[in-house]
Write a protein that binds this DNA or RNA. Sequence first.
DNA 1: TTGACTTGTGTAATCGGTTGCCCGAACGCC
DNA 2: GGCGTTCGGGCAACCGATTACACAAGTCAA
Lengths: 327, 327
Amino acid sequence: MTQIRDVAARAGVSVASVSRVLSGHPSVGEDIRRRVLDAVKALDYRPDLAARRLRSRRTDTIGLIVADIRNPFFTEVSRAVEDVAYQHRMRLILCNTDEDPAREASCLELMRDENVSGVILAPSLHRLAGFRAADHPFPLVLVDRCDPDTVADAVVLDNVEAARVLTTHTIESGRRRILFLHGASSATGRQRLDGYTAAMAAHGLTAEAVGVAPIADRSREVAQVLLARPALPDAVLASSGLILLGLTQALRDAGRRVPGDVAIAGFDDQPWTRLVDPGITVVAQPTYAIGREAAELLLRRIAAPDKPVRRVVLRGELIVRGSSARA
Amino acid sequence: MTQIRDVAARAGVSVASVSRVLSGHPSVGEDIRRRVLDAVKALDYRPDLAARRLRSRRTDTIGLIVADIRNPFFTEVSRAVEDVAYQHRMRLILCNTDEDPAREASCLELMRDENVSGVILAPSLHRLAGFRAADHPFPLVLVDRCDPDTVADAVVLDNVEAARVLTTHTIESGRRRILFLHGASSATGRQRLDGYTAAMAAHGLTAEAVGVAPIADRSREVAQVLLARPALPDAVLASSGLILLGLTQALRDAGRRVPGDVAIAGFDDQPWTRLVDPGITVVAQPTYAIGREAAELLLRRIAAPDKPVRRVVLRGELIVRGSSARA
DNA sequence: TTGACTTGTGTAATCGGTTGCCCGAACGCC
DNA sequence: GGCGTTCGGGCAACCGATTACACAAGTCAA
């Protein structure tokens, strides 16, 4: 393997100069710079990252910790993060937690051991309580989930407002008994519940919410039970794409007509929501932008660790389709 | 930061012994082992990975290079790979190539620079020509894409057979003019085309295939053009989930009735395929298993670099739904 | 002219572990 | 009892970069 000393020898300079040229240090003469670059090219030299990292104490690596990469929301976020990382010549390490606090803790430890430059985390509900970015040994940005009092950089949707808009739309479509299926294990689900509750209260309607695990199959099971009850609600709303998927499956399996028997709507504008008939009314999240903003915010945080924390709040967009039409 | 010498001091042993205990070296006395472990726990010592990697020349990291993590097939594969990696206390570094050979090359270089323990790669068509795992500086396993003569470990579907089964099913449903939309930029698309062609030939039918980029929007555009032609085919098959999605969108936009006007079927049993009405006939791939097998094969390869290359071929499962019913 | 500063480069210490080598003790065998 | 082997453990070299420090040469103002 060719090393820095080989390059130095071929260029007729010291290893220090080679290192300086390669790391873009300013005070190095034009002559030496050229000779070093020539030698680097001639030998196809690639610095040993392990050695560089040991000495410099920097890894140029960012960690991404999500509940499950298979959730299309996180899939898209991860792609955005990887794009930004790639543009900045940084690596991306990926972890899934399945919402399990123990596994989440283990992932955070892994990131610490890796000495990553920073972490993007979608925290479990459990971890978010009293969460402070400053308690962690690396810069950290939250995505998707964040409480109002959380002391950390974060990129999130305005969940309360989005759910309020969605609920109000449903009410204005003439529905009264509106059921809300929300992810019980995330702050996001809770906040969307708040928005729903507020909208219902504002119209003098009774809120009726059911918490479910944010997995399509669970949501389908719960929806099946709810739909088997004697009095069908006018509408059912889902607080996430996966829950909406399960709900839609349950309705189809039960042979219920949408929006005739019951209206539905939810979050996340996944491809299938406009493929089914009728199309499904959703609040679309700017998913890629959320991931990109999070990555860029993290890079700024890495560059300036002492700036005050920042929260980026993005807005959802209501996309009205047939599933929430008047009965 | 607490270092190995602190642990050694507290345990009253040499740093070498601490290192041996921590790396599971066999010849360490029970007494010393216990004292070291106690000290490690008391000090909450965590070895510095950069230092360890520099000296040991091992990173316990595996790289995953796919076209686009947003393709649900690769999403699931990556989750499986991460699960296996996590179980073996290894890290996962992720890269997307967008089928771009230059970016793919850059990702492979990145993996080399990282000195990863091994790589799982879904190669572009361009790279697969004359591909040999031995040409790479790390153990390497191919997923999803592999030619019959490729000299590399690989985990793939029996694409020819799967496409043959799907096509035969369509023919036996009474269709004659069957169009095949295949991913033009991957070996997988080509092989599925071969299976389709063989099945058509076996029944004395004329094959008619159109290559498309493996992106839903592209596939939709192509399908729109094809469906606007005067004579509608009896059926259209898609060689991948994304292409199938675009095809389905185009049919819906054009107001064509399935299977009345035209039958459709394709690959990948994604949730939406049984959500639309009628459900869509597909060949389901054992996606998670493909990822798991690839990761496990890679780990075996890392453990035994000189064993002969192995190819794991998994079978798809035909799931018949309404979209391919008799007209 | 000289002292203070700046600029460019080299020397060598350093990052924090792993591991080759060596040595002493214990053990088994004749 | 002597000798060869095995076992356990310590010393110190080593992995391959970065960077603190030293220093030589050049610049400039007083």
